[in-house]
Amino acid sequence: MLRIHFSSGDLARTRIAEEPDPLWETVLSLQQLREKSREPVLDGWRRRRCARGGRALRTLSPLMPSRGYFPDFLTPAEGSGGLESGIDAVLSTPRRQLCGELELLADHNPLPSEVRRLAEGETGALRRLGRALRDYHASVLEPGWRDIASRIEGDRRHRTETQCRLGTEEMLRSFAPLMGWQSPVLCADYPVERDVHLQGRGLLLVPSYFCRRTPVALLDETLWPVLVYPARPLCSDTPAAPSARLAPLLGHTRAAVLQALQTPRTTSELARCTGVSVSSASEHATVLRRAGLVASTRQRHHVRHTLTQLGDHLLTGVQLGRIPPPSASRHHGRA
């Protein structure tokens, strides 16, 4: 679980990134590429499989494992200003930071000699890294950049409009069930237990086309706090999210609770994920359980909630079957 702790000053300094960040998209798309993601942008790259893309992959892959840690210097804040600004910042990384972050990467991943030369700040290795970042962007991201930027802009507009009309706290609540806001803490599922204290610096929220499952934060807490999260699919080309479809039936909070239970959760985890109190989460879970949508089991001092088959089908829109054909005296053919 990731917990980001806010003060009132942090709320005033929290904002959404104004432009797509090409370096974050580089790292996250490369991870998706190795996971056989069905993203259209990556499907096009697989079909072309050009030599430039292959060389870039050989250089970048050891630095960007598909799971776990990757170095913070690969996604500098300057990346929000465009690809060249970001690459210039990467190549200007202090040698001490290069060495420290690549040593941390080596703790869990065997690294080739090229990466060791990079850790030493060798000029040639840095130039090859810069060239690989440019080539990867040109061969993988640039052909589909319009779609990438369009989705990110749609999400950014939605969040900023919510923030302008209703305030930062309501904007943070809009992330449910991906993240839960329970003042003064923003929580999200995360591979490790981690607490981040903003200490008056605020938070930069970066929507990403390729981010999946959980948000991503920088490891080095001396850097400006950044949280990268999956951008919402555009309404024009994607069916409405289950919580949006079910909100008129269940209410917004209860629909968010139901969607959050696609992952089994305790009552406390459910409260953090959806941004409600523990008592409110328990009440919503009880109503959903009585409706046959949720099952609850006690495990020592906790109650764990999971979707039933009926609840899962309601979320995914799968039909459970049809009622037998009516007799001639009835007028309605479906339930």
Rank of each mutant, 00 (worst) to 15 (best):
D189M: 12
D189N: 13
P191T: 09
V192E: 14
R194I: 04
D195Y: 10
V196L: 10
H197A: 12
H197F: 15
G200Q: 07
G202W: 02
L203T: 03
L204D: 00
L205T: 01
V206K: 07
P207R: 02
S208N: 03
Y209I: 04
R212D: 00
T214S: 11
P215A: 06
V216D: 01
W224E: 14
V226N: 03
V226G: 00
V226Q: 11
Y229W: 07
P233W: 01
P233H: 06
L234Y: 04
C235V: 12
C235K: 14
S236A: 15
D237N: 15
D237V: 15
A240S: 14
A240C: 10
A241D: 08
A241P: 08
A241Q: 13
S243D: 11
A244I: 10
A244N: 08
A244C: 09
R245I: 10
L246I: 05
L246Y: 05
A247C: 08
P248E: 01
P248G: 04
L249Y: 11
L249N: 06
G251Y: 01
G251I: 00
H252E: 15
H252K: 15
R254Y: 06
R254D: 13
A256W: 01
A256L: 14
L258V: 06
L258T: 05
Q259A: 12
Q259Y: 01
A260G: 13
A260V: 07
A260N: 04
A260H: 02
L261W: 00
Q262S: 14
R265F: 07
R265V: 08
T266Q: 04
A271V: 01
A271P: 07
